[in-house]
Design a protein around this nucleic acid. Sequence first.
DNA 1: AGAGTCTAGACACAC
DNA 2: GTGTGTCTAGACTCT
Lengths: 140, 140
Amino acid sequence: MSLNSIMPFNVNRNTPVVKRLLGFIKDQREENRKWCEKAVKSLEKKLKRTGGIDELDKAISTQNTNTKCVTIMRSLDGRLQIHLKKGLPHVIYCRLWRWPDLVSHHELKPVEHCEFAFHHKKEEVCVNPYHYTRVQTPGM
Amino acid sequence: MSLNSIMPFNVNRNTPVVKRLLGFIKDQREENRKWCEKAVKSLEKKLKRTGGIDELDKAISTQNTNTKCVTIMRSLDGRLQIHLKKGLPHVIYCRLWRWPDLVSHHELKPVEHCEFAFHHKKEEVCVNPYHYTRVQTPGM
DNA sequence: AGAGTCTAGACACAC
DNA sequence: GTGTGTCTAGACTCT
């Protein structure tokens, strides 16, 4: 018996860790649910290679700054795209799990021990939301 | 005075030839209008380099098979994408200007003198709708 | 420099 | 192998 005869119509089966991570999302507006889900699933796919997904899970569920860097590759212009929207990776994931009203990368400062913070401009970027703190926008 | 002060809010200004070509489109369903417009504008952009847009205009407005090939570059898998939809270029444009109910490339046969017909698998593909005839789907 | 659009190629899945 | 659909980096555009 094929799987399709049991679960037809493209049933969405999120992995346990994705379900957990989705539960921690700050923005619970219905109109953003689909996009947030895509953002988390996309991140899981990238982190599977390195096992970073478990470190991310640990950081978020314990709100612990003393976690390791969770990195993805940096694109040429620094942005990543999820569905039809582009943005800076650390901003996207900090907004998702910590500050839904975050406006720009100018409001984010990395913690001391973050090796792959966005502003270091290395080939990899840390997207651990607990490796950034929120600061006042300069000039505001 | 800037153009924006006269025409604010992203007014859509199609070129005369795009307006003409849009007038010949067979599929006039409202839900497809936006997509068709994108398809024509995308083609115009590609053909501007070669001047093929005028030959296309001639072929379509006179329904003339004795026109030159109108070519675009072939992608690796043969398909092109317009907005969120992928398809074979000659099928897309034959559907647009001749047979809105066209289902697949198996229904299309190139005219004798078409040098860049899709099935020739050259680096360029002819999208002149009057360089193809419609045939019965094999096996139907 | 900041933000948005477009799409080929990569990938995934169904037959 | 065929056919179709999704995702997104890089290219491009505009401001």
